[in-house]
Design a protein around this nucleic acid. Structure first.
Lengths: 112, 112
DNA sequence: TTATTATGCATAATTTTCTTATATATTACT
DNA sequence: AGTAATATATAAGAAAATTATGCATAATAA
């Protein structure tokens, strides 16, 4: 992530969730979607994104479909069944993390 | 962090916030406080905690006060003025991060 | 009384996950 | 013609953890 360089470990969750929502996406599209949703506050770096996509593919969580737009190559990624399951887990993990951080940082949120 | 090994970068925020709240604390006390607040869901590892404390000290964000309880050594840390300022920044950063993650992960939270 | 658990700090080696920099190529805009 | 946007990729390095040790004191359980 760029500009606000924050909280390593959340990139995979972002990728999985966006793919879960949009069926298939290519790398550059993901970077633009993140910029759009976060109003430029979060910017994915290619150096993090592409290796992450390759790793998710290698783990069997994503499938790739190569497409050509004119002479330009695009690689569309989509969730496999295992990827969909992993998405559920990662989202639960994120909610749990946010809940814990809120409790730590805001005494109001403690002990509910 | 242990068990839920998640979101590198938030340890410093946790330390600063707890010190902001409790005036002075020692390392082990911080680990126990985090376990207590998060009901054992987050556990700090010493291998992360102590180097982080030393680094914050080196940066001038913390002061140390060595105390002896019987024959056992304790190192109490407290925020410096710069540390208090940094705490404000880190907390704002966390809120911003949570806001962005919520928007990414939950379409309901987009565009407000 | 002796072994285990809890308290308390610390560092080294390794791993994970980023950033930064670089590379290449196509297409659109000025 | 030159720059910006589109599109993917990898290598080098930094940051921030985990894991594995190590040492020592105090309290508790067997």
């Amino acid at each position: 992530m760029k500009s606000t360089n924050l909280y390593k470990g959340s990139l995979v969750t972002i990728i999985l969730k966006l793919l879960n929502e949009h069926d298939k996406m290519y790398g550059y599209e993901i970077t633009q979607k993140v910029k759009e949703i976060t109003k430029n506050e979060l910017q994915l770096t290619e150096g993090a994104l592409y290796p992450a996509l390759h790793k998710l593919k290698a783990k069997g969580l994503l499938d790739v479909e190569i497409s050509r737009i004119g002479n330009r190559v695009r690689k569309y990624y989509r969730l496999t069944e295992a990827g969909t399951k992993e998405t559920v887990d990662k989202l639960a993990e994120l909610e749990s993390y946010i809940k814990n951080m809120r409790a730590l940082v805001n005494p109001k949120f403690r002990g509910e």
